[in-house]
Design a protein around this nucleic acid. Structure first.
Lengths: 208, 208
DNA sequence: TAGATTGTTAATCGATTAACAATC
DNA sequence: TAGATTGTTAATCGATTAACAATC
């Protein structure tokens, strides 16, 4: 946990949204933007935006707004995306395949540096440009790679075991696509992406 | 919006989690569970769990707990997953492919009934068992299918247009995988799944 | 009955938003 | 300077959790 004041998770999530919008604005050669302009683009209340930034310092000029270029750079740095973050992927199925081939990943400065699976018929095969490795060797492999982010893209029944292996391999954060609640040590941060949960919430809103 | 009292979104999200845990408990032949047991399984505070249920009526017996079977059935019904929900998928790329072949989808009672793309070289080809159709025909196609849920799995620059087409096709809810903020009419509910945002939040927590 | 656990109210906690003095 | 917009404080809103009477 790098910063002094605890940062609310919703703030971090919005920071990622701001970053993505600022990337677009930069390529449209917009130079300056006010918090109210940004509300237009993101739907996030202008006061909310300024409050979010205030956790990290001062970024704008009263009466003028924010330099798109500077704000972009500073949010990137806050999220540690000013450097390429190496990522381990476990699970060479359809989802794993889609993730390795997902263009925004590289654009966001993430690089999947290794793919693992436990299926002998997959190990040794290629997934895009990467050779699928035995998940049993993940600790060993990550000694060189030193990735701190792991992605779990395996079936639900294997997810906890994979989480344990990732922790053993010194990964500090896990993005979990399996629809299960993972148990990890307190120093490890997990975020879950659960398609079915998302669809279930939408389903609730449907008329009878 | 079917229910009288407005239901907090976090409650709906947790409901989906409870459902998934209850499905597991059912197949383990557990018959009764208390809110405190459930806290063990989900990490959700027992009072929170009871409060969540209280929006929808009374489900348990004081001193005894909840019937797993009954609770499972009732949450399914609340989320309208006691019937199969037809889903339109737009985007026949890697991600679309992974979604059609994602087993928990069917298990959760969702069925992707049609896949659309705008790429002429894909239209007419098969994606698993489904024939890829021209997204320009989506309004027409959905007249028969009457799906109310749409999934956007296209590149960011095409997402807004696809959203417009889905709305035009009378879809009421959209699961959006593209990293953009969609504009839709107020009667349409959108949920975003943004891998890069998730990774960005995790990246923040890494040491320098 | 005694023990356990619910459903619900009230207290706490945290996040969002409005308002405004500071300042470019 | 006058107008615009920031950074921040204070007010509002909503969600979480503790506590407990009701009840199986």
């Amino acid at each position: 946990m790098p910063h002094g004041p605890r940062i609310p998770t919703p703030t971090l999530e919005r920071l990622a949204t701001y970053l993505s919008v600022l990337t677009n604005l930069r390529s449209s050669n917009v130079e300056t933007i006010s918090s109210l302009d940004l509300e237009e683009h993101t739907g996030v209340n202008a006061a909310q935006f300024r409050k979010d930034l205030s956790y990290f310092g001062e970024f704008g000029r009263p009466g003028v707004g924010y330099s798109v270029r500077e704000l972009h750079a500073r949010i990137k740095a806050i999220l540690k995306l000013d450097r390429t973050q190496p990522v381990l992927l476990v699970g060479a199925g359809n989802l794993g395949r889609a993730l390795v081939g997902y263009p925004p990943l590289a654009a966001g400065n993430f690089e999947i540096v290794a793919v693992f699976d436990n299926n002998p018929s997959k190990i040794g095969k290629e997934l895009w440009h990467l050779m699928i490795k035995d998940v049993a060797k993940i600790v060993e492999e990550n000694r060189q790679l030193e990735a701190k982010i792991g992605i779990i893209a395996v079936p639900a029944n294997a997810a906890q075991q994979v989480a344990d292996q990732l922790v053993e391999a010194d990964v500090l954060t896990i993005l979990n696509f399996a629809p299960v609640v993972l148990r990890v040590p307190p120093h490890v941060k997990v975020r879950n992406v659960d398609f079915i949960q998302e669809l279930a919430v939408l389903s609730f809103y449907l008329p009878d």
